[in-house]
Design a protein around this nucleic acid. Sequence first.
DNA 1: CTGCGGATGTTATAATGTTACAAATTCTGC
DNA 2: GCAGAATTTGTAACATTATAACATCCGCAG
Lengths: 163, 163
Amino acid sequence: MSARALPYRPHNHDDCVSQALAEARAICQEQHARLTPTRERVLELIWESHKPLGAYDVLAKLASEGHSAAPPTVYRALDFLQQYGLVHRIASLNAFIGCAHAGEHHTGMFLICRSCGNALELTDTTVSKAIHEAAGAEAFVTEAITLEIAGLCPSCQGEQPNG
Amino acid sequence: MSARALPYRPHNHDDCVSQALAEARAICQEQHARLTPTRERVLELIWESHKPLGAYDVLAKLASEGHSAAPPTVYRALDFLQQYGLVHRIASLNAFIGCAHAGEHHTGMFLICRSCGNALELTDTTVSKAIHEAAGAEAFVTEAITLEIAGLCPSCQGEQPNG
DNA sequence: CTGCGGATGTTATAATGTTACAAATTCTGC
DNA sequence: GCAGAATTTGTAACATTATAACATCCGCAG
């Protein structure tokens, strides 16, 4: 890999957002799921950056734009978006991030920079195959994989190696 | 693998506990860390089974045996135990489990049964190597890996495949 | 004995997530 | 279009998980 992945370099992030929204609309239409205004707005807020966003951060943003919302509003929207593979929950951060591979059947693997907070979603068949095999060797039936790597992204290395 | 792993079959669990405690004492002595009565008791409670235990479950058990404890007591003990590699936190469950490979430098990979709740800790070099390589390909410096597999353990397959 | 540092106790509070039920909206069959 | 069903949203209260801040205790070196 010669160029750094998107989150780690300057880019026109509006393109990320509009593409994600377009895909979301297509997926929901195809699946006969209703991407209501609230759900779409939550997805858009999640996509505001490549940093995972907490549910209460989403809530605050909604509130700040006049949308009288309570926690269930946000959690319901997030549940919906997760169900259709449009966002992922990052368990180690209690936060949510837009899915970079919506529609594709995949196992997300996240590289999360502890310095800048950006997260990159990868799909790596070698990794997922190794995981399935290790689980299979114990006769374990895999249903869901949580794989989150914390560390330093290329942009943050050498800057503040600690804290 | 012909025999099922320990958590998935009947065994004398007292042996698990006493071995874990013995290892903990050895590790703490070697590292000049103080395995105080509270810390040791928390470790013992965590090891009461192979199911991850919530901090407030530990708290309740402590309280039920007369130990007047508040959340910080438990969280401090858990922080200590994590620091010395004696317990792991399962992010996807907000719970803690005794480390099956204390002392060894390792990356925990957990097979968590959604039916019986038991968790098996594995170390698999193929998996961890694949993960490090995938992260390295993005020039990402790996510091910590969260890898938690949810599914059905051998004992629970065929019994209640759903819910 | 005295002071220092780690460990613990205690109270309060923050952050995250859920339950339960009412109201509004959208869909469906007619 | 309309009645009824189903889905979505609003709202209030609450449950769970985790931390902050500060006082106290305890073991030990000097």
